[in-house]
């Protein structure tokens, strides 16, 4: 029957397109150009003992069932410069941070993010940190100029100056993706992905 056949051809072609799109997921798995910036990473996320198994700030893996994207080991995504070989490589395309999850002595300390800013820009490039909703977050910012860090959405501001890092702790109770910028330079410093 012609109709059914043409429809079926459609379906096959369309599924092929979907598959191709999923394939792009793999294709984009090799690290983005900014990944090399993490070679001399001073950024580290210290996760509390209560942190979940998704402690590493991987972005895409939470709800991803075993899929080609995560099954295929991509050698390019685990370069020699990776500072934390113990971290399970998750081949996520956009994660540029290589944090070192280590159990902290005191529980419920939450997530600590240290970031260094030079000339308003993050030394290690813009990275996205994944934080569990309602987790406590501490951001420690140091920089070579006097400036403020502005956390969008939460509308929090923390000042810092050369030699005097700024520290702010807050509960990550608003789900979503939020930019963190230097106020005076107006540069994007990091993104927080809550939830």
């Amino acid at each position: 029957m012609k109709i059914a056949r043409s429809g079926a051809t459609c379906l096959i072609a369309a599924i092929a397109m979907v598959a191709a799109a999923c394939g792009n997921d793999d294709a984009s798995a090799p690290p983005p150009p900014t990944a090399s910036a993490t070679a001399q990473s001073t950024v580290e996320a210290t996760l509390g003992a209560t942190a979940t198994s998704t402690a590493a700030p991987t972005i895409k893996t939470t709800n991803t069932p075993p899929s080609p994207a995560t099954e295929e080991p991509t050698p390019e995504s685990t370069p020699a410069q990776t500072p934390a070989p113990t971290v399970v490589p998750t081949a996520t395309p956009s994660t540029t941070s290589e944090p070192t999850p280590e159990p902290t002595p005191t529980p419920d300390v939450g997530t600590t993010i240290e970031v260094e800013v030079a000339g308003g820009k993050p030394v290690d490039g813009v990275q996205r940190y994944r934080i569990d909703a309602r987790d406590s977050v501490t951001i420690i910012v140091s920089g070579d100029t006097t400036d403020e860090l502005h956390i969008h959405g939460y509308d929090l501001v923390v000042g810092f100056a050369p030699g005097r890092p700024g520290t702010i702790t807050f509960e990550a109770d608003i789900p979503g993706i939020f930019e963190v910028e230097t106020h005076h330079h107006g540069d994007l410093v990091m993104e927080l992905q809550v939830g």
């Binding site: 972005i59 895409k60 939470t62 709800n63 991803t64 069932p65 899929s67 994207a69 969008h152 959405g153 509308d155 608003i174 789900p175 979503g176 993706i177 939020f178 930019e179 992905q193 939830g195």
Partner: peptide, 10 residues
């Protein structure tokens, strides 16, 4: 001031 979370893959 807020961006949506990524859609889950499934």
């Amino acid at each position: 001031s807020r961006g949506d979370l990524p859609l889950p893959f499934y």
